[in-house]
Design a protein around this nucleic acid. Structure first.
Lengths: 220, 220
DNA sequence: AAATATTATTAGGCACACCTAACTTTTATA
DNA sequence: TATAAAAGTTAGGTGTGCCTAATAATATTT
């Protein structure tokens, strides 16, 4: 059994591994957890002893199978609860994260599975991230970013990379959500801004930073 | 803001007050929380300083309005989550308590109200206890116990006093749940055992301890 | 390569919530 | 009422997870 804190570390480290970070360092973890690198080192020692991860200065941090499984299950629970909050309780996609952050730690052998069933076995959470299956299988994350498409292309929003309220609220303001259709009108070479047309909204100009955080599927 | 532990103290003390304990002592609290009286005294001092309760050796513990409100809100969340687990996720009434014990501490300004709405504003939880309204109003708890009825009377189960899995599983075995109809066939004067007929089950004999923990409404 | 940043780690502390053991007060009983 | 039992309290200590400050090790520049 893990403490709440341990669970958070395993989840964050799992997320960093998924993100493709070649080397996971105490500093990277402390930034994700918003705490002090010294605290991270303390915890890494403890988790290493518990055989949930391996930590060597050279290679950085690597989850063991056991640690990774726990991380996946937390992510699974997080995303299922997010889906619940959006589908059943009517929360906006910018509101669900913080609540799910708490709900993900509720412990019970069958709770996640029952919730999964109740929700109709959703494949993706409200941010478009894949919900791991009970056995730990996780669908591949979509990879194309709005910033990578050329002018003239059309796509559908499938996920967001940044899930901060600031970004999500901005998206809400622009009437852009999962499934929204976006056409790229023009790319401004000066600063890589992009002029887009979103289905519900008219024409907008968004920054490169914005476009780097919107995950899309090109519509052929 | 309160810590998880503080919330648990306020909830337990509120429950003891509702139960009608004239004097709430550290020992009573420690028994309910399954911890050490010395720990309770530590916490009582802290909660007193925070103006969430008043503690004087003579009078025992008394929640302030602020403390009581927090207690009620935790109880509200607990019972709403129990209703959710039973109605929506299909858990048995002996299973919901432990999960709700965790869910009740999830913090969000509108979560309880949204859950309440989603569940159709239930008045009672799966154990028959009243769910406090958002404003703190709480319906009176049913008071008649099976043990108090005379032979020949018929009643309906409205709640359980003891919510331990042991008791709830026993009830399940006897096919007795909220709403079950029970007729008292005979009262054994030797040890106050009661011979009953429950609607789904045939005749059973139950102990006085059992009968003291089943809350009923007499059917006239 | 030397100097300078950056990053990692250790040491020492703190708050929280618990514990045991000793002591004091209250309550019950002989 | 004196004595024994129970309950309440204090003192001192523990583990968890965090912190700051100091030091050590790595990277990055110049």
């Amino acid at each position: 059994m893990q403490t709440l804190s341990e669970e958070n570390y395993l989840k964050i480290i799992y997320n960093l591994e998924i993100k493709g970070l070649k080397k996971i360092t105490p500093t990277a973890i402390s930034e994700a957890l918003n705490n002090n690198p010294a605290s991270v080192v303390d915890m890494l020692k403890k988790l290493d002893e518990k055989k949930l991860l391996e930590y060597e200065k050279a290679k950085g941090v690597k989850l063991t199978d056991k640690g990774k499984n726990i991380g996946i299950q937390i992510v699974r629970k997080h995303r299922l609860w997010e889906a619940f909050l959006l589908d059943k309780l009517g929360y906006g996609w910018d509101e669900v994260h913080d609540i799910a952050e708490q709900l993900e730690h509720v412990q019970h052998p069958t709770l996640a599975d029952r919730l999964d069933e109740f929700l109709g076995f959703p494949k993706y959470d409200p941010h478009g991230d894949p919900i791991p299956k009970a056995n730990g299988e996780t669908a591949a994350t979509y990879k194309t970013l709005l910033a990578e498409l050329e002018a003239g292309k059309t796509c559908r929003v499938v996920a967001v990379k940044d899930t901060s309220p600031a970004f999500l609220q901005y998206l809400k303001k622009l009437n852009i959500g999962i499934g929204a259709k976006i056409t790229i009108v023009e790319k401004i070479s000066f600063d890589n801004s992009i002029v887009i047309i979103a289905d519900k909204e008219g024409q907008s100009t968004v920054s490169n930073i914005f476009a780097e955080n919107l995950v899309v599927n090109e519509t052929l």
